[in-house]
Structures are given as structure tokens and as C-alpha cells.
């Protein structure tokens, strides 16, 4: 037992990790959630007219260096992102909730209360703005390129008297078609975004994902988030279905999300 007591006494300092801010959160929805690390439970911290959803964590595990390492480790990054999201999502079942970014930490509960008091008006206005709304993600992909080899526009006889020229022509044709498809896809993305903006209370363009993240060999031309009224999933699905048919682009939707993308600014 004695070595337990003497082991690294400085490591027992705790910090307060903040997941989200709401007006009220039923503590029972947080029961059993692991949060950022094993040990202390995820719990509610009343802060005046607001409630923060927090967890006491070992300060030494959440230093800048620890975060650098954590964020560079794909598995650990995923665990943290999902743990954070699980708490945010659970809190949001009780009413409008402002998610805080991953890695929001304070030195202790009193620092959290202070920050919440300082920012109470902004939190309140954001909570009002997102009440009754959820976020949907919409991603648009360029229509897939026609499969099989490109048609040989140059013709067979040119192989004899101008193979080089034919090659260049073929190359040029290929490039033009690719360029054309890309232009079409960007137009489709704009059309989809314009229609969805009409439908949504607010919208935000995110940076499109590269091919490795989006999977398969397809080009993402729109990555956007829309704040829409709760319960309008069927309408949104129908609308994106129509847009897909009309534009020929591939559309993926995800949601409903807690309105992560609409709590910034004021």
C-alpha cells in the first residue's frame, strides 16, 4: 500500500473537462458514460441559469503535450471524439445544448463557473437560436466518370501517319471531358446548396473531404451543414432525393446532429 501513496503525488491534481452547456440536463442521461477518461463520472455542474456538463480528469493526462500526442494518434483521437460526442448527444436529449470543442479544459469547477458567468448572455442567445433545430450534414459528390476506356476519337488510321498527334488529341479530349465533368459537379453543388439554404434556418460550408476520407474514387464537391427544424428529416430526405435525380450528382446526408456547426459566433 505504501508505494501507492508515494507514487507521483503531483499527478493527482484534477482539471475540469467541459463537454457542453445547456439550461438543464437530467443527470441520469449521463449515467454510465465513460467521458474522457476512466475515474470520475460525467456530471452536471450548475452555473447560474446555465448547466455545464463536465468531468474531473487527471490534469497530467490533459496537458498540452498529452493533447499533442493524443491528437496525433488516430485511435486515441477517435476515442476522444466519440467520447465527447456521446456526452454531447446525451445532454442534448434534455433540450438545446451548446457543444464545446474537443479539449475544452479548466483548472477546476470554479473556473468553469466563472467562464460560464462571463459568457452567460452569449450562451443564452445561442441556446435560443438553436432551440427546436438539429443539424444535418450534406455531402455532394461529382457524378462518377463513365467506366471503360475513353472513346478513341482519333480513329485507327491516324496511328499510321500521326501517332503523336493522335495521342495529344486524345489527351486533350480526356482533359476537356474531365474539366467539363468537374464544372458540372461544381454547378450541381451550388444548385444543391442553394435549394437547401432555402429549406434551412442557417447553413455553413465546411471544407470538402479529400478522396481518402470520402472513400472510393469519387470527388466531393460540397460538404455543408444545415440547421433545420426538428422533425423535418423526411422532407430533407425527399428534397435531397429530388436534387440527386435532377443534378445527377451523388448526395449523402448525415444526421440529425446536435447543432455543432451553428453555435459559433453570436
Amino acid at each position: 500500500m505504501s508505494d501507492l501513496v508515494t507514487a507521483a503525488p503531483q499527478d493527482t491534481t484534477t482539471a475540469t473537462y467541459v463537454f457542453a452547456v445547456s439550461r438543464t440536463v437530467d443527470p441520469s442521461v449521463l449515467a454510465g458514460l465513460p467521458g474522457m477518461e476512466e475515474g470520475a463520472p460525467v456530471h452536471v455542474l450548475p452555473c447560474g441559469r446555465l448547466t455545464a456538463v463536465v468531468q474531473a480528469v487527471t490534469a497530467a493526462h490533459f496537458t498540452e503535450e498529452a493533447w499533442q500526442a493524443r491528437l496525433s494518434d488516430p485511435a486515441e483521437l477517435e476515442r476522444c471524439a466519440r467520447a465527447h460526442h456521446a456526452v454531447v448527444s446525451a445532454a442534448a436529449t434534455c433540450g438545446p445544448t451548446v457543444p464545446l470543442p474537443l479539449a475544452t479544459l479548466y483548472r477546476g469547477d470554479s473556473r468553469v463557473r466563472q467562464a460560464m458567468a462571463d459568457e452567460a448572455d452569449r450562451f443564452t442567445s445561442v441556446l435560443d437560436r438553436i432551440a427546436g433545430h438539429v443539424e444535418w450534414g450534406v455531402k455532394v459528390y461529382a457524378a462518377p466518370a463513365p467506366s471503360g476506356p475513353e472513346p478513341d476519337v482519333a480513329g485507327a488510321d491516324t496511328a499510321v501517319k500521326g501517332a503523336g498527334l493522335a495521342y495529344l488529341n486524345r489527351k486533350r479530349g480526356l482533359q476537356q471531358r474531365r474539366h467539363h465533368r468537374h464544372e458540372e459537379a461544381l454547378r450541381a453543388a451550388e444548385a444543391v446548396d442553394a435549394e437547401l439554404r432555402e429549406f434551412a434556418a442557417a447553413s455553413r460550408r465546411l471544407r470538402p473531404h479529400g478522396q481518402e476520407a470520402s472513400g472510393r474514387r469519387r470527388v466531393q464537391v460540397l460538404n455543408a451543414a444545415y440547421l433545420v427544424a426538428e422533425g423535418s428529416a423526411a422532407e430533407l430526405t425527399e428534397l435531397t432525393g429530388l436534387l440527386e435525380a435532377r443534378t445527377g450528382a451523388e448526395i449523402e446526408i448525415s444526421g440529425p446532429w446536435v447543432p455543432y456547426s451553428f453555435v459559433g459566433g453570436a
Binding site: 452547456v21 483521437l77 471524439a81 466519440r82 465527447h84 460526442h85 454531447v88 451548446v98 457543444p99 464545446l100 470543442p101 474537443l102 475544452t104 467562464a115 459568457e119 452569449r122 450562451f123 445561442v126 443539424e135 450534414g137 465546411l206 473531404h209 476520407a213 470520402s214 460538404n223 451543414a225 448525415s254 446532429w257 455543432y260 456547426s261 451553428f262 453555435v263 459559433g264 453570436a266
Partner: peptide, 14 residues
């Protein structure tokens, strides 16, 4: 990837 779009880039209320 969609989750990271959200938990990392946004929510900057404070």
C-alpha cells in the same frame, strides 16, 4: 470524418 468536422472546428462559443 464528419464527427471531426464538428467536434474540432466548431463550437467556439467561448
Amino acid at each position: 470524418v464528419d464527427l471531426l468536422d464538428r467536434v474540432m472546428a466548431t463550437g467556439v462559443v467561448i
